[in-house]
Amino acid sequence: MSEVITESTQKVAARSRPPWGRILAWGGLAVLLALLFFGLLRTQSGGKRIGARAPEFTLTTFDGQTYRLEELRGKVVVVNFWASWCKPCEQEADELEAAWRYYQPRGDVLFLGVAWTDTDKKSLEYLQKFGITYPNGPDLGTRMAQAYRITGVPETYIIDRNGVLAYAKLSPFLSIEELKSAIDPLLED
């Protein structure tokens, strides 16, 4: 739009002070292209940030505990986005819970469930139904989902001990082995 205006500015300005119109036109175009460029960069980087620092977040769980990613250094953090209305999430619910029970004794693996666009009541029903024991909380303001640029649920992100995003899966886990094979390498080093 800036382009439209500046070009029409141009029309009139040309006779008196030509440079202004031109500067405005080029400036408007540059702003527009810059916006598109960064917008595109943002879109393109979705799901490709493996190896980069994972976006920070604060998650307040349904029972009131608060987890900050920056305070979880030294632990492998498995962040799972889900929703009670999501059928594929149900597929992986048992696997996730089983994996949590498997790793929980070690103490250096943390599972966090994030309920996306879900009502609290339904979320709690879901957690009850599948007997999920790892911490779960709502994504307040959909901020986490935006930071991780999720495209749907379920999506799972695994963050290594140094806060680096090490693994992302944009579909449900089909077996506990699949989960283990994603987590175990991060525990070795």
Binding site: W85, T117, D118, T119, K121, A145
Partner: peptide, 27 residues
């Protein structure tokens, strides 16, 4: 508007997520 069906108003969005949101409004 709910993030699940972008650009479709909540009152006509047919997804389960939106149905639950409407239920929440009702409550």
């Amino acid at each position: 508007y709910c993030p699940v069906c972008e650009n479709t108003p909540l009152d006509v969005c047919p997804t389960q997520a939106c149905a639950e949101w409407r239920e929440l409004i009702r409550e």
